[in-house]
């Protein structure tokens, strides 16, 4: 009798120890990203066509430069030499102009080695994370290392799911209309896989709802001066504001318009988390909308999410209706100017 009790006690102790090991959170990780601000030439409709629907692309007004323009973006590199760009996985090609997807579990630290490859002073500042390294602008050609810590107060709140979205952005003058934004996914402590992604979600997508007014971008003079982006040699002086102001606006999803964002794929029945965000150009009010499926947002069932300026949101979908569907902005002038993309639900 006594032996049996002893055995039970020993087994219980062992089980407790085992459990402690199993549920002990993984040691806090330091996640390092090499990110440069680069000046790129961008085209929101690389196919030259409206891949979304039967209607043709709206003709650009006469004082529009065209579909190509210069843009500042964040891009990831393999190491501190900043010689080789970190290849974006094929299933992330849809991220377009959006900066590298960073991840952290609560307790982790993100280290960003930053290089400014542009001709303008810019920086990197996270929303929601604790940053060291200051907000000073980094001179063209210079570098800076930032450490962003991820305490409990940067992670999901009681009514959030297992992960939430933050963004990082540049603080320099007139950068709201640049492409200098990127996503950070923070996962609840104990809920992350080794790469930082939440372990109760099968698939994640990040979509930036964005309006670029190229005339307000720091690269505007460059876009005007470059025959590759200004093939008709428009002169700013011959089209004073507000004509130019109104006619070089590009609404986009991750930089793409008129269905040109690479197709997103998911399977029926998967737990899909969509992270959507806006930035802060003049009219960055958007209404991300999904066809064919519904989402849960803060516990309520919707298929249109109203977003304010510079607002991130995470919504959950379990797709159940196979087919090709639209994701788009429900603001009518945005939809008319091609703020739409497609996703496919496979059986």
């Amino acid at each position: 009798m006594r032996r049996a009790a002893l055995l039970v006690a020993a087994a219980a102790a062992l089980a407790t120890a085992l459990l402690a090991i199993v549920v002990q959170p993984a040691a806090a990780r330091e996640r390092t990203y090499y990110v440069a601000a680069d000046d790129v030439m961008w085209n929101p409709i690389p196919s030259g066509r409206n891949l979304e629907g039967p209607r043709p692309i709206d003709p650009l007004p006469p004082s529009s430069l065209g579909w190509k323009f210069h843009l500042l973006v964040y891009r990831e590199y393999t190491d501190a030499t900043f010689k080789t760009r970190a290849p974006r996985p094929a299933d992330q090609s849809y991220l377009g102009i959006t900066g590298p997807l960073m991840r952290a579990e609560v307790g982790d630290t993100i280290t960003v080695v930053f290089k400014n490859n542009t001709r303008f002073p810019v920086n990197m500042r996270p929303n929601g994370l604790k940053s060291t390294g200051g907000l000073a602008l980094v001179a063209p050609g210079s570098r800076k290392t930032y450490r962003w810590s991820v305490p409990e107060s940067s992670g999901p709140g009681p009514a959030d799911g297992s992960s939430i979205l933050w963004t990082y952005q540049a603080d320099g003058k007139d950068l709201a209309d640049s492409g200098l934004y990127g996503p950070i996914v923070v996962t609840r402590r104990g809920m992350a896989q080794p790469d930082g992604s939440p372990n109760d979600v099968d698939r994640e997508f990040v979509v930036w709802f964005h309006e670029i007014d190229e005339t307000l971008s720091p690269t505007w003079a460059e876009s005007l001066a470059d025959p590759a982006t200004n093939p008709h040699h428009l002169k700013a002086s011959s089209y004073p504001p507000p004509v130019l102001f109104n006619n070089n606006i590009y609404v986009n999803l991750n930089g793409f318009a008129y269905g040109n964002m690479p197709m997103l794929f998911m399977h029926r029945g998967e737990r899909v988390r969509w992270y959507v965000f806006t930035s802060s150009s003049a009219f960055d009010f958007h209404a991300p909308s999904w066809e064919g499926q519904t989402v849960l947002y803060r516990g309520t069932r919707l298929d249109v999410i109203p977003l304010n300026v510079n607002q991130p949101a995470a919504v959950d979908m379990i797709p159940d209706d196979p087919g090709v569907w639209q994701i788009y902005c429900s603001v009518n002038i945005h939809l008319d100017f091609g703020m739409e993309a497609r996703f496919t639900v496979l059986q």
Partner: peptide
Amino acid sequence: HGLLYAKSSEGAPYRDG
């Protein structure tokens, strides 16, 4: 909005294959 439908009951024409 919100309901489950086959493509033949979506009521929206776009390039969906």
